[in-house]
Design a protein around this nucleic acid. Sequence first.
DNA 1: TTGAAAGCGGTACCAT
DNA 2: ATGGTACCGCTTTCAA
Lengths: 346, 346
Amino acid sequence: MNLKELSRRLGLSPTTVSRALNGYPEVSERTRRRVREAAAAWNYRPNTRAKSLATGRSLAIGHVLPVSTKHELVNPIFADFLAGASEAYATAGYDLFLSIVPDQDEERAYRDLARRGTVDGVILHGPSVSDSRIGLLNTLGLPCVVHGRSSGIDEGYNWLDVNNRRAFFRAAAFLLDLGHRRVALLNGGEAMDFATRRRSGYEQALQERGIPVDPALIAHDEMTETYGHATAGRLLDGPGPPTAFLVSSLIPAIGARRAIEERGLRMGRDVSVVTFDDDLSYFRNAGDAPPFTAVRSSVRAAGLMAAKMLLEIIAQGGGAGVPRSRLLEAELVVGQSTGPFRPPVR
Amino acid sequence: MNLKELSRRLGLSPTTVSRALNGYPEVSERTRRRVREAAAAWNYRPNTRAKSLATGRSLAIGHVLPVSTKHELVNPIFADFLAGASEAYATAGYDLFLSIVPDQDEERAYRDLARRGTVDGVILHGPSVSDSRIGLLNTLGLPCVVHGRSSGIDEGYNWLDVNNRRAFFRAAAFLLDLGHRRVALLNGGEAMDFATRRRSGYEQALQERGIPVDPALIAHDEMTETYGHATAGRLLDGPGPPTAFLVSSLIPAIGARRAIEERGLRMGRDVSVVTFDDDLSYFRNAGDAPPFTAVRSSVRAAGLMAAKMLLEIIAQGGGAGVPRSRLLEAELVVGQSTGPFRPPVR
DNA sequence: TTGAAAGCGGTACCAT
DNA sequence: ATGGTACCGCTTTCAA
């Protein structure tokens, strides 16, 4: 069932039917209702491709996700972000176009997206410091919202981020105030913008307490399970092992916990592990929202917000308006689950 | 730069340029080369929407993912499956549309997808026993590959699945042969096809060893962290607590481990936890591929295979050919990481 | 081997 | 308030 067919059955022109369905004011209410009912009865759905070819808008949003060629694994949290974004797209009648590309191909992916007219805008994931993609998208004229920020970028851009610095400041402060003196930081790759902010929060907490920052306790790498396992193991076996780990993501934390268990150490008693992923600490939330779940819900919410932001920008012409931004404050949910988080008494 | 523009610059007709670019044989090699070079030089990319409108094929595949309205969380493993599928689509020139819908809306999502001509085929995720979506897609004439299977469906359909039954048989047998007598099964929702198969493998292992199946040790629910935490806690606090847990997915396993840690029990010594997610056990793989990573890699591979299967089906007309299927044997990677997995000596 | 022209399924301008 | 028609960018007969 297409427009022509439907209009023939109604004895109307395609023009009128199109107008009726798309809410144009010049259609009489009687006609509109007739058309609406017929469309529903015949189960008519406009062909998206034809529609977007005619309007010039694709009614789709692209999410381009770089994956490391080295590890090929996707941050699992990403699925929740997409679920949140989907919700926004569904209500706005947009499709979600997903493009998972090896990181070295990413620039080409954006160029293609723009040239082929596949999407009306994109959400940019995993920004690094001075991320070149932001400028590229600007040049291409493709509206964009960055999930995260990119320090070093001068031009205005739209972003939604969590307060990584504050979150890690608070997490580190929490551990230090319990008496920990050797807190290791298992951070993300050095080029990642979030990693620099998290490190800075961690360092500030130490400095405010007059505790020297020990570079040996800070690690930067892609957040894999192997990385968490190897790094935690190395630190635990080395001189002056940490009594607590602050881990940037769930995945390396799984590895770190395994390293701890392998050494017969008790979680939360001999060694504490605090994991962050986006805006929530991996502490325990006493009752119904366990930590990982809480993180995931919040990421889902972030996806929803970012998508809405992008849709608004597109609705307003997509051009260079005032850049929008939103900073989600870190929420620290503290409890006692895998131990009291206190340092062991020597 | 579009076709018309490009052809004007070349002094050729759009027809010839189109033919040259799409590999039609009737174009002279000289012309073809000229066109190819010009296209590359001018960075020409055909407009996907126009192309698919003209050809009737959308050059896109849809992944429709049902999410529980209750929990709204997506199985994180899903991101890896998508990454694998993406790889197949990228090489074939296909796009990936993602549609994450509340489970009660799913039927409408499929109908829309088919009618609006958004995609040439879909991959169906999370099939239940006697899943009605398979028949629906058949009716709609939308080529489809099921990730998983659906017992109770008579008509032929295409699927790719792991050997859940055998995997859980082996995992349970492994624990029982170490001397465990009370092995709890934290399974997925009762309606899920994979859950029935996993349970059946688990039960067979018990029966073969003459150990009665205790229904109190078997739990079925959506695989959330809360579920794992609450269920494991309840069983540990109850009469005749299990000495081992066989958990169907990483997420509830995180909860279960937390319940164990909270009770001061040592992982792998007082209580063992074995997690499955798709075709790999959550045992430890000694060196460079830690368990969770191994699982994810294999899911990625499954995504790649499923996508290739679907693309072949579409290439062959998409119609009702001989249904294809592929059963991935479970791979059991055993090692000692969070303890020897032996039951505690009483 | 190349080109002209008629669609694909809509939208939107210009008439009426 | 409704209809005719020229596009949107590409493919595909059909003719030359």
